[in-house]
Design a protein around this nucleic acid. Structure first.
Lengths: 134, 134
DNA sequence: TGCTTAACGCAAATGACTTGCATTAAATAA
DNA sequence: TTATTTAATGCAAGTCATTTGCGTTAAGCA
């Protein structure tokens, strides 16, 4: 995701482009792993402003939440072109993320649908040691 | 899970059988949906004691955590005989849970392993409207 | 260039959960 | 059975991520 495209998307959603927002956006786009609000912290930014901006970024589709099992919300920068349904594998050591394209759960959802379930959704996250860390 | 078997398992793990523990255990075994600590609250029980007991129950394998996306920990009573790997589908309306036996993700994990990932794990939760609620 | 209102930053609140500590009472040994 | 040990309890207070209130600042439009 490029900085200018991100600004454009924010604008289009009616969010103002402020200095703080630009700084937080830059820090966000710099992230290569799932990150938490605290990871964006810097001396000249209020944490509250970071939280509010993460909400705006999520609203504009710049980032998406991907909680793991720890106690805080994690986000990942959305890659345009990956807007469709997909899953991730996160390295438990280096936290790097790879996208797993395609999803083989349609068959199972169909089975559940046959049993009478409606509006089925799923959340699936893989973790492991990535090739570098293994 | 039967009350007496649960007590037995707690004992075997070195946990004492106290009055408060028995009361919390009874309330726990009464749950049919994923429940949170607060769901076990009652006038004569301290929330702290509930938290500590949930930890003991988890340790003894009586319950297991199954977080959904909300802000608190959820637990489900373990059914003996379902100790193997499986997933759940939770109704987004009535919160009822059904077990999905078997897991079709082995193939995908194999693909990931072929790419060099090690010690792969996954977390998968389905949600939807159950036949009754649909 | 002035107006409206979103966004900011500070302080304080929230809510789930944990920790410290003195007291009580299981489980075990005597 | 009784004494002993130490886990479990209950209260108060503390964490920690996140949210809310509010007065002030400034973005973006008229």
């Amino acid at each position: 995701m490029k900085f200018d495209e991100a600004l454009e998307r924010l604008s289009r959603k009616g969010h103002r482009i402020t200095e703080a927002r630009k700084r937080i956006l830059k820090a966000t786009l710099r992230q290569t792993k799932p990150f938490a609000a605290g990871d964006l912290m810097s001396a000249d930014l209020d944490l509250v402003t970071i939280y509010r901006n993460l909400k705006a970024f999520e609203d504009a589709g710049l980032i998406c939440r991907a909680d793991f099992n720890d106690e805080m919300a994690r986000y990942m920068v959305s890659e345009p072109g990956h807007d469709h349904h997909h899953h991730h594998i996160v390295c438990r050591r280096c936290q790097n993320v790879q996208t797993i394209d395609g999803c083989m759960l349609a068959a199972l959802e169909k089975t559940l649908a046959r049993k009478g379930f409606k509006q089925i959704q799923h959340r699936l996250e893989f973790s492991g040691l990535c090739p570098k860390c293994a």
